[in-house]
Amino acid sequence: DWREIAKLAEEALKKQQPVTVNGQTFNDPNEIKKLLETAQKAI
């Protein structure tokens, strides 16, 4: 669910920690931002 992904990505950016989505881990803040943008577009 994109809403859940957006929430996870936002928290990861705030806490500056990696986030795992669908078994894929994102460590890079730039990648997390991209993930968040993608999720927000999909909602």
Rank of each mutant, 00 (worst) to 15 (best):
L13M: 09
R3K: 15
V19M: 11
T25F: 12
E37M: 01
K14N: 15
P18H: 09
I5M: 06
K7M: 13
T38K: 12
P18V: 08
K34W: 05
N22H: 10
N22K: 09
W2P: 08
A39H: 04
V21A: 07
W2M: 07
Q24F: 06
N30T: 14
L35E: 01
E4L: 04
W2H: 07
V19G: 02
Q40I: 15
T20Y: 11
L35M: 09
A6I: 12
I43H: 05
T38G: 08
I43Q: 08
P18W: 04
K7W: 09
K7R: 15
N27R: 13
N30Y: 13
N27P: 06
Q40E: 11
K34M: 11
K7S: 12
E10C: 12
L13C: 04
K41E: 11
I5A: 05
K15H: 13
Q16D: 12
K14M: 12
L36P: 01
G23M: 04
K41S: 12
K7H: 12
A42D: 05
I5Y: 00
W2I: 06
K14P: 02
D1T: 04
T38I: 15
E4K: 05
E11S: 06
P29H: 09
I32P: 01
T20L: 09
I32M: 03
Q17T: 14
N30W: 12
E11T: 07
I32A: 02
K15L: 14
A12C: 04
W2R: 04
Q40L: 13
E10H: 04
Q16N: 14
I43E: 07
I43W: 00
L36Q: 04
E11D: 14
K34S: 11
R3T: 15
L36D: 02
K14R: 13
L36G: 03
K34Q: 15
K14F: 05
L36H: 04
V19W: 00
K14E: 11
R3H: 15
D28L: 00
P18D: 08
T25D: 09
K41H: 13
A6T: 08
E4G: 03
E31K: 05
L8K: 12
D28S: 05
E31L: 10
R3N: 15
L35N: 00
E4W: 03
K14H: 14
W2C: 08
E37A: 06
E11C: 08
A12G: 10
L13I: 13
E37L: 05
E37W: 00
E10A: 07
N30H: 15
L13A: 04
K41G: 10
K33H: 11
Q40T: 13
N22I: 06
E11I: 08
E37Y: 00
Q17R: 11
A6Y: 08
V19R: 00
W2E: 04
D28E: 11
P29Q: 11
A9K: 00
K7A: 09
L8V: 10
L8M: 12
R3A: 14
Q24P: 02
L13P: 01
A6F: 06
Q16A: 13
E31S: 09
A39D: 03
I43L: 06
N27G: 08
P18N: 08
E4T: 08
G23L: 04
R3G: 15
V21I: 15
V21D: 00
N30E: 15
N27Y: 15
Q16L: 09
I5K: 01
N30P: 07
G23A: 04
D28N: 05
Q40M: 11
T38S: 12
F26V: 11
K7Y: 11
A42S: 11
I5V: 10
A6L: 13
T20I: 14
T38R: 14
N27V: 15
E31P: 01
K33A: 13
A12E: 03
D1R: 08
K41D: 09
G23S: 06
A42K: 10
A12Y: 01
E11G: 06
Q24S: 10
D28M: 00
E4M: 03
K15W: 06
E37H: 04
V19C: 09
A39F: 03
N30V: 15
Q40Y: 06
K7Q: 15
G23R: 03
T38D: 12
K7I: 13
A12N: 03
P18E: 09
A6S: 07
N27S: 13
L8H: 06
A12V: 00
I32D: 01
P29S: 09
A12T: 00
K14Y: 05
I5W: 00
K15N: 15
L8F: 05
A39N: 02
E4F: 01
E10N: 06
Q16I: 08
R3P: 15
K7L: 12
W2V: 06
D28H: 03
